[in-house]
């Protein structure tokens, strides 16, 4: 019996093959995008380079600042919720670094007394700083307004821009996933409707011969399951390729866990939709003597 039903399902699938291909593609891409959305942390961490993940800012103190004023800046940095840690770059060391990085300026630089090099704090920012909407940049802008602070160098505006783009991208992925999911379901149900219409007489005869409702419904569930399985394979292959070949994820296993949860949810949705569709379609054949009038 099961073989008979499977055979019918395969036949139905083949008879609406284009619908099958399109809906499984849609479903596959939708699953991929949905996973991308829920696992954005992992993808973000893999996408954003290390320097951006551990962002450092430089705070230069003006030369005429009194030690007391320097202590005050230190205190501000210490209590700030955006600062992970900070350290003082020694003037001599900074000078050496400068000479090394800008060796073509050696001639100009050799006359400068290292004493005029400003005192610089290297500040390591917390991760929240990047996710906060502007508050963190504001903090550094204020810091720059303090008279004893000469200037603040931070890559923050750039990184924030990356983050904003990425956030937009995520939202786009979510909407795209939902849109494709709806498309996949609509096409799946249309395919099932077509198959059902094509085998209306069979369904009618099965009904008359005493087939249980499972007997009539199961081939359509199988049909839906085929679409789901192909979609699953497509999205999994996509995720795997994306993770391993393109962005080098920390671990695909973390991604896969939620991916399967989403897939299971999608499958449940699909089954419920198929159930209602087939139920609805069956009502139409209950009283269809017309089927036999040629």
């Amino acid at each position: 019996m099961l073989r008979f039903l499977l055979h019918r399902a395969v036949r139905n699938t083949l008879s609406s093959f284009s619908a099958f291909v399109i809906s499984s593609l849609c479903l596959g891409i939708a699953l991929f995008c949905a996973t991308f959305y829920v696992e954005r942390e992992i993808f973000l961490n893999s996408l954003v380079p290390t320097w951006a993940r551990e962002t450092k800012a430089l705070v230069a103190i003006s030369n005429n600042a009194t030690p007391k004023q320097v202590e005050k800046v230190k205190a501000i940095l210490k209590v700030s919720k955006w600062v992970k840690s900070f350290s003082q770059i020694e003037q001599a060391k900074a000078w050496d670094r400068f000479l090394k990085d800008f060796s073509h300026l050696k001639d100009i630089a050799k006359d400068i007394d290292p004493i005029y090099i400003p005192l610089i704090f290297e500040v390591t920012l917390k991760k929240e700083c990047l996710n906060s909407s502007g508050e963190c940049s504001e903090f550094f802008a204020k810091l720059e307004d303090i008279p004893s602070v000469e200037s603040v160098f931070s890559p923050l505006p750039w990184i924030r821009r990356i983050y904003i783009w990425f956030e937009l991208f995520q939202k786009g992925a979510l909407f795209f996933a939902l849109f494709l999911f709806v498309c996949a379901m609509v096409i799946t149900l249309l395919g099932i409707k077509l198959s059902f219409q094509a085998s209306k007489r069979e369904a009618y005869i099965f009904d008359i011969l005493g087939a249980s409702s499972w007997f009539i419904k199961l081939p359509f569930y199988f049909q839906g399951t085929f679409i789901f399985c192909v979609g699953l394979i497509i999205s999994f292959a996509g995720l795997y390729g994306f993770c391993e070949k393109i962005i080098d994820c920390a671990s695909i296993t973390d991604v896969v866990n939620l991916f399967f949860v989403i897939s299971a949810l999608v499958f449940v949705c699909e089954v419920i939709l198929i159930e209602f569709t087939v139920r609805f379609l069956r009502i139409s054949i209950r009283k269809s003597d017309d089927l036999w009038v040629q």
Partner: peptide
């Protein structure tokens, strides 16, 4: 109904074959 139908054999006037 399906159990009752299983215990029936019906020959239709217009056959109703596949």
């Amino acid at each position: 109904l399906h159990l009752w139908r299983r215990s029936l054999g019906i020959v239709f006037q217009d056959f109703r074959l596949l």
